[in-house]
Design a protein around this nucleic acid. Sequence first.
DNA 1: ATACTTAGTTTATTAATTAAATAAACATTG
DNA 2: CAATGTTTATTTAATTAATAAACTAAGTAT
Lengths: 395, 395
Amino acid sequence: MRKNVIPGSFQLMKKINTGLVFDAIRLYAPISRAEIAKLLNLTPATVTNITAELLKRNIIMESDFGKSNGGRRPVLLKINPNSYYIISVYIGPTKVRVATINMESEIMCSKQESLYSNISFEKAKEIIVTLIREVIDSCIVEKNKILGIGVAIHGIVNFEKGIVVFSPNFGWKNIGLRDVLEKEFDIPVFIDRDVRAMAMAENWYGEGREFDDFICIKVGYGIGAAFIKDKQQIRGVSDGLGEFGHIKIKVDDLKCICGNYGCLENYASERAVIRFARENGYEDEFDIEKINLEALNGNKVIVEALKKAGYYLGLGVANLINIFNPGLIIVGGDLVDINIYFESLIESARENSLEDLFEHVKIKRAKTGKDSIIKGAGLLVLDSLFDSIEGEVIV
Amino acid sequence: MRKNVIPGSFQLMKKINTGLVFDAIRLYAPISRAEIAKLLNLTPATVTNITAELLKRNIIMESDFGKSNGGRRPVLLKINPNSYYIISVYIGPTKVRVATINMESEIMCSKQESLYSNISFEKAKEIIVTLIREVIDSCIVEKNKILGIGVAIHGIVNFEKGIVVFSPNFGWKNIGLRDVLEKEFDIPVFIDRDVRAMAMAENWYGEGREFDDFICIKVGYGIGAAFIKDKQQIRGVSDGLGEFGHIKIKVDDLKCICGNYGCLENYASERAVIRFARENGYEDEFDIEKINLEALNGNKVIVEALKKAGYYLGLGVANLINIFNPGLIIVGGDLVDINIYFESLIESARENSLEDLFEHVKIKRAKTGKDSIIKGAGLLVLDSLFDSIEGEVIV
DNA sequence: ATACTTAGTTTATTAATTAAATAAACATTG
DNA sequence: CAATGTTTATTTAATTAATAAACTAAGTAT
């Protein structure tokens, strides 16, 4: 039996158009009603109605007059940045960061705390809950202005069920994090994996702004991917989509932490760069900053290691291009910021993909920087703003 | 700027619901109005309205009474098989087949003709046009009952533009096949690649019937893939999605016809099986039937070649599983019908994918058999039945 | 000063779903 | 077996939200 059956209804119509208008303002503010109507193929009257409602709810505001185009001056609309707030949580492998962000994804205040390997969920929960309370208090946000809590976490997450399926660093398995936080704070909670949060940040504030569909890749200790289609996340049948680091690019080669052999992660991640360098006799301690420094200094072993890893990621990217014919691939992570790695990856992607397909794809570095994941976590909440079933919206 | 902006409107509402009702009848006929309403979350009144229109247009018909469930007996609806017809064309590497199919994708009559390598488009066009005329004549179809022409062709096709981008066997490049046929017959023409047609057949009449989303793989001389999401084809930014045969699974290994190295096609296609067998000293002439026979007879060289090729396809399939977390993968083609190959592929897919993801995927052989592509070509037309912009439908 | 443009709102209309009432046809039960 | 309740389907009226068209507002161009 089919699952995704959403019949046409007035609610749906309204939801679609309200969402489109909101998105148009998010993307192109300041923008006039007339422009929105043209952009979305809606009649001016419909735009007036919808914007009136958004204005009444304080979600948007009239900001200024635009320049006349030979007639009455347009009234420019924009998001009302501080009408509502979102609590963003990023649970990384070594620390947790909590922030209050506003409707324009600006960070109002932010606190963080260290985490350690194999920390129990109980302990971590206490830390997280405390940070959330602190952040709420320090921003003096009225509690009824908080739309919800968005959580990004490394590892495997089931968005629909709100469960942390597996968090390698902490050893957590099947933790019902959403329910815990919803019970604690009594507001809606959304949980997703880090790379998906990053993709959402790029979707609305980064390279993906002008695109409906793109692929986002995050290279770190491991490698993950997110797929955006029609500005929405695709999550796969069991919310497991995006284990891009575990595609096989070599047969029966190195064993991976996942138990299999020849996974891309072994050849293209930070782990891989370190291994390549070690194999060629580099003996110093190093982290990602050291690598970058050495690369800039022209250390041959490091340069070669970066080139090699970049080559392999390019191979993986080429596979995505050949399979999926995407228009945009966004790559993020510390390694990607190193030119040698990025250039090698581009060259390899070009070399290993079909020419006709490579011609149509743009490969870009993530634009949203250090805060992308925490901002993206918040966008999980914002994206649900017009999703409620009964036509009743959260706010 | 966003591209796929379809605002909510009455037209859209109607189109969605009419499409859903039609699809429900296609999939679950004979089915009553009440069941449709329950299935689709529509009110009985809406279903009455929509079915009344479909009845008036002769697209569906009332077939029989169902058993009472304690009240009035339901009236069962089904597709009116012979209300309209579709001309289906499959242009394979060595032959072209043309058929008339009815609304239930039954083949009413079918003719075929050989083609040869490097045949000019002019010659081929003449053959195809003649076959279409013959098929129309021999079925005594009133011309105004023909919905359109659906064409499936091997190689690279641009569905939107209706262009054959590249047909390796014939050496065709950028042929405007749709325009040629539309000018000739003055009815709508739709063109797509063979694997996508196959996917459509599986979508409505094969393993994909109960699924919204799946991946379809066709193994032949080469290897292609199609992606179905929400029962619709995904085609990629330049209609080039699905070059699954050209993902790299070995680094710097065998050169492929595409110019690159280490493509999956080199290790998992019919070509690969033949090469593996040759490498191990098998010298007879052989085609796919011979291979199957030898496999059944336990010829070790052939068996090993099949196992090896199956292993590699499984590796590619595992990559798809890891990347996309699909719920269903359908594999078709002559090789797949050979048990040794298929079993090896399943085992390899299991071995090379993440356990959590493999658990959620079903890997099935294509169910629609020899006629799948020609039927699928017709479904390209049927799927556009309610697509017209003005709310005016083709019929 | 007049005519024309563009922006945005208001009013009336329209399309299509939805709710509610009704009818048809059957099953169940005391 | 008559009365009652169910299920199926249609009809009617209500409702929703988009749309068309008229209109107001506020500008530019000549």
